[in-house]
Computed example of a mutant assay.
Amino acid sequence: MQRSTKSIFAQLVQLMGGKIEFQNLVNKYQSDKGTKGLTTWGQFIAMLFCQLTGAGSLRE
């Protein structure tokens, strides 16, 4: 039997409601309308990761 483990980051995202609840809000407020690059979810995950790792910017 193989045991699967989730990273602490994945567990934190799951505690925050995960992608489904977030996507419901994105659809409600149409925040992805007209995006050409990063989606709202992608930007949120990138910014959350940078915040937790203490990065000074997204480019570091």
Rank of each mutant, 00 (worst) to 15 (best):
T40Y: 01
R3P: 08
K19V: 04
M1T: 12
I45V: 10
Y29G: 05
L48F: 05
C50R: 15
M16G: 02
E21M: 11
F22P: 00
I20P: 12
N27I: 09
M47V: 12
L15C: 10
L15M: 13
Q23E: 12
I8G: 04
N27D: 15
W41E: 00
R3K: 12
G54Y: 05
K6R: 14
I45N: 08
Q51N: 12
S7H: 04
L38G: 00
K19R: 15
I8W: 05
Q43W: 06
R59E: 15
F9N: 03
Q30W: 00
Y29H: 13
G18F: 00
Q2C: 06
R59Y: 14
C50K: 15
Q14I: 04
L48Y: 01
T39M: 08
E21F: 09
K28H: 08
D32Y: 01
K19E: 11
G54S: 02
R3Q: 13
F22T: 00
W41F: 08
Q14L: 11
A46G: 03
Q23T: 12
G54H: 06
L25D: 08
Q51L: 15
F9P: 02
K28F: 09
W41S: 01
G37L: 07
S4F: 07
I20T: 15
Q14H: 08
V13K: 09
T53R: 13
G42P: 01
Y29K: 08
G18N: 00
L15Y: 08
Q43G: 03
C50T: 10
G37M: 03
I8A: 09
F22V: 02
